[in-house]
Design a protein around this nucleic acid. Sequence first.
RNA 1: CGGGGCGUAGCGCAGCCUGGUAGCGCACCACAAUGGGGUUGUGGGGGUCGCGAGUUCGAUUCUCGCCGCCCCGACCA
Length: 566
Amino acid sequence: MRLSQFHLATVKETPADAEIVSHQLMLRAGMLRKLAAGIYTWTPLGLRILRKVEAVVREEMERSGAIEMLMPSIQPRELWEETGRWKKFGGQLLKLQDRKKQFFCYGPTHEEVITDFARNELKSYRQLPVNFFQIQTKFRDEIRPRFGVMRAREFLMKDAYSFHLDQECLAREYRNMFATYTRIFTRLGLRFRAVKADTGAIGGQASYEFHVLADSGEDAIVFASESDYAANIEMAQAKPSNALRESPTEPLYKQPTPTQKTCEAIAELLNLPLCKTVKSIALMSGSEFILALLRGDHTLNEIKLARRLNLTEYRMANEEDIDHYLGTTPGFIGPLSPHRPIRVVADLEVANMANFVVGANQTGFHYSGVNWGRDLPEPEQIADIRNVVAGDLAPDGGGYLSIIRGIEVGHIFQLGSQYAESMHAVVTDDQGHARTPLMGCYGIGISRIVAAAIEQNHDAAGIIWPTSMAPWSVAICPINTQHGTKVQDAAESLYQDLQNRNIEVVLDNRGLRPGPMFSDMELIGIPQRIVVSERGLKQGLYEYRARHRPDNEYLDYTTLLERIQT
RNA sequence: CGGGGCGUAGCGCAGCCUGGUAGCGCACCACAAUGGGGUUGUGGGGGUCGCGAGUUCGAUUCUCGCCGCCCCGACCA
């Protein structure tokens, strides 16, 4: 590519609303232009990179045996009503109407469409197993789109759906996809980690998320120091300490705490460690009042809570509820002597505490020296409902847990039969009986990967592309071309030569001064740069520099060609 | 959806409080000089001041409504 024939659109100033570095650099490098909230145009440069990611994903999916197809982005309401998701998917589903007032949605995912396809196409067990994939634009009407293409409303995704007669076969494909994803992210040059995850709205049993590791990641991921245990914070468990509960030694005492409403303030007032306090979280599920108890230094994991208590819907209690059930005001609530009967759920750790502090259900007071069995009944329900913290014991005994940030770029699920069942997809088995196939589903956020890669690979000058994603692998920069044609000719012939060798090369023939030219090439992250200059040519030398290194190498033509990596 | 903020040239911003038809930097165009890290000079083009109503002799400026965008929170494959 000659840059004079390309639309390079770098800008000096960072638009004010770009918060994270990948968004800023994608804008400055001119890969992206915003059209509306969470909706972006990919420029020619951006598209080259997006296509690179796509190509790697496509190649590896095909190598794994999956078959590419393309489903529509617009989907009819009827399909979504068959699975109940027209309502259940919620506000993220963008609904549309055509001229006949028929309802459609812009596909946020394609389980319905593929299952419809499968029930029409797949008749016999002989056609199974099969794994269909597509690379398609999706739309999810995110509550708060942010960080550019990292959390956009419109985005490019690879999604794959597999069909199987039995669980064992599904599990085999699931492992196959795990291996495929590992190859994909490795080839893309990303530092990543696979973690156990919640299955969320898509449903199903087993699920792994693939996270690119980056401090700016929106997800917290947990891993063990001495084993390969890794899980999303939503799923991560800690091994409860097997120490026996201490025996009650302190008397129950009502402490005046006139203004202390938080565990932190109580701990400070009473000069106690935070872990001797218990925080009470008041919830309403339907007409039931639930008090969830957590150690003062822990936080509630709402996903675990909903799961363990089998709650489909709940909300935080408001002041009225608290007054009604506990007869007090927020900040002083606790499980002792509620005004009316309530349901108490204690976290595993709380159930094992002794001589602790809780709210007294009386404004301005907390109890200290509280003990289970003596001052209040043993908790009626004990469950793991907290977020793990760094330093907790790993659940498999593999040392201690650490928490790092990650960007979710892939997710694999064993969906099971729910979609096939609700949409009546069946195949005939070798006995001639109709069987409901089991499904797996496997997603990769193509556009998100581009942003994630930048989060991991950049410096003060700009992006540093992993070779597999770079828009070009080499940039040729002719310098001071105004004194005759020597430099230009040499650059041109080098350009031709590299092209003949199938190296993706860009020639910066825009006639810029060296400063702007270099900084553009650095900003857009071309991994290798060759400077052609009069002064170098006199000695028969070219100046070679790798993007991730600060120093130049002066090489003759033969060595230069050897030095260049494809 | 709740709270906060912002909409003035392609981008970044000033002007608004105290009404009198708009300015700066970058970018863009032309010419000239310069030529190894965003060079310099001269000249130039570009804005119904988000939209609508109201107040006023007069509204970018004051008031109300709407729309869009951003941040925090809730939420989320």
